[in-house]
Amino acid sequence: MKDPSQVIHDCAVRLLKMAVTKLPKDVEAALRAAEKSEDDPTAKTQLSAILSNLELAATGVPMCQDTGVIIYYVKVGDKFPYSGMIQDALVKATRRATEEIPLRPNAVHPFTGVNSGDNTGEKIPWVNWEIVPGDSVEITVFPKGGGSENVSIVGMLKPGVGLSGVKKLIVDNAMKYMGEACSPNIIGVGIGGGADIAIKIAKQQLLRPLDDTHPEPAVAKMEKELMEALNMTGIGPMGLGGKTTVLGVKIGYAMRHPASLPVGVAVQCWAARRSTAVISKDLKIEYLTHPGGK
């Protein structure tokens, strides 16, 4: 019988390696389409550099030196027999991946300024837990870079500004940070809940494939409208001008307090790295974003 904790550990290391060296298909396809559609020479140069970089990275090198703060999203089935082993396995996998891939050590103690050197420490890697019906576990690795995180915001709007106020917040933010977040970006938006809930929902939207459509027409319409508006700004790849400022806008929501309109805006750089696998109760692994674990 395989050691369940080792299986989870090995799976997470592999997920980290795939995430930082190879983009999910939907993201790569969007970047290729953008490169074709640009006629501004600077914008085209930026996008073709990104595409050459992806080819080099696919040989096993992190595509970006900022391999991010390591975040996991875990959906654990209520009948998965090894749920108690997951947290520990993920922390150990983060350490091993830091050394083996390698990842850049990005965990700094806020009081002492000391970098732990292995991407672990107080509350890091951060694990988002969700308990779902079933007997398997789905693990997503989401390394989040600092540049795009630095321009993510929460706006506590007055409900009276309505949805057009929500849209203004997102567009104004983009026009402020311009190319600082390594555009083309993906924008995750969370509306409602509370300050913490809104930004959590916003970040979760970044896990959605770019080619999906929100099931609710009103939300889908706003996603499309915002994407078109942001691409009208002329900010372009790396903020050096062009048509492609965002590859997608993804919106989620929660019910809100009558007196509040919280809006979380999570900004993702073009290196939208994520990888997901499912481990069954008999420890079989299926890799979803990178089929065959490649």
Partner: peptide, 30 residues
């Protein structure tokens, strides 16, 4: 990446230097 502000621009002029942008995120290529 992302460019710099007026203070740097003035110093570039005075000293005789330039600021170059490298495509952000292209770590493997660099």
């Amino acid at each position: 990446k992302g460019g710099m502000g007026p203070k740097t621009l003035a110093a570039l002029k005075e000293v005789g230097a330039v600021y170059c942008s490298y495509t952000g995120g292209c770590g493997a290529l660099a």
